[in-house]
Simulated scan of single mutants.
Amino acid sequence: MIAPVSKANAAHYLWGQACEGWHLLERSDLHVIHELMPQGAGETAHRHEIARQVFFVLSGKLGMEIEDTIHQLAPHDSLEIAPGIVHRAFNAGREPVEFLVISHPSTRGDRQDEPL
């Protein structure tokens, strides 16, 4: 049955430094997560061997560290991360940041922590 999915009814989880996520679509070939990252929070640098990801900012400011470059993403900005690229997302603003992470295929079992 086809039905709308939102933060109100999606599978919820906690991760990292008080961050939250909601699985909007969780399939082996495509994974869409709505994430909330509080001020000052961030994730560990890592890479995905197979998955390609797109980060799309809904509200707030998302920082994305990729090798020696830091990108500042504002609402409605997106950034593609190709497989094998070491990256780290962090909250670059003074308010929570909400964003979508779209992964093809799913990142399940495809994450390796790496230093930047």
Results as ranks from 00 to 15, higher is better:
Met1Cys: 08
Met1Glu: 13
Ile2Asn: 12
Ala3Gly: 05
Ala3Met: 12
Ser6Glu: 06
Ser6Phe: 10
Ala8Ile: 06
Ala8Asp: 14
Ala8Pro: 02
Ala10His: 10
Ala10Lys: 06
Ala11Gln: 14
Ala11Lys: 14
Ala11Glu: 15
Tyr13Arg: 11
Ala18Asn: 15
Cys19Gly: 14
Glu20Trp: 02
Trp22Met: 01
Leu24Ser: 01
Leu24Ile: 05
Leu24His: 07
Leu24Pro: 01
Leu25Gly: 06
Arg27Lys: 09
Arg27Ala: 07
Ser28Phe: 11
Ser28Arg: 15
Asp29Thr: 11
Leu30Gly: 08
Leu30Gln: 14
His31Trp: 10
Val32Arg: 02
Ile33Tyr: 03
Ile33Asn: 04
His34Gln: 11
His34Asp: 15
His34Pro: 01
Glu35Asn: 10
Leu36Tyr: 09
Met37Asn: 06
Gly42Ile: 03
Gly42Tyr: 06
Gly42Arg: 05
Glu43Cys: 12
Thr44Val: 10
Arg47Ser: 12
Arg47Gly: 05
His48Pro: 03
Ala51Leu: 05
Arg52Asp: 06
Val54Pro: 04
Val54Thr: 13
Phe55Thr: 02
Phe55Ile: 02
Phe56Asn: 03
Ser59Thr: 11
Ser59Pro: 00
Lys61Glu: 15
Gly63Ala: 07
Gly63His: 04
Gly63Val: 01
Ile66Val: 15
Glu67Gln: 15
Glu67Asp: 15
Asp68Leu: 04
Asp68Glu: 14
Asp68Asn: 12
Thr69Asn: 09
Ile70Thr: 12
His71Phe: 14
His71Leu: 08
His71Glu: 11
Gln72Ile: 15
Gln72Arg: 12
Ala74Asp: 14
Pro75Gln: 07
His76Pro: 00
Asp77Pro: 02
Asp77Ala: 07
Ser78Thr: 13
Ser78Pro: 01
Leu79Ile: 05
Leu79Thr: 01
Glu80Tyr: 01
Glu80Arg: 13
Ile81Ala: 00
Pro83Cys: 09
Pro83Asp: 13
Gly84Asn: 12
Val86Asp: 07
Val86Pro: 04
His87Phe: 12
Gly93Cys: 06
Glu95Phe: 05
Pro96Trp: 04
Val97Asn: 02
Glu98Pro: 01
Glu98Asp: 10
Leu100Phe: 13
Val101Asp: 07
Val101Gln: 03
Ile102Phe: 09
Ser103Met: 05
Arg108Cys: 03
Gly109Met: 05
Gly109Trp: 02
Arg111Phe: 01
Gln112Phe: 13
Asp113Leu: 10
Pro115Asp: 11
Leu116Asp: 10
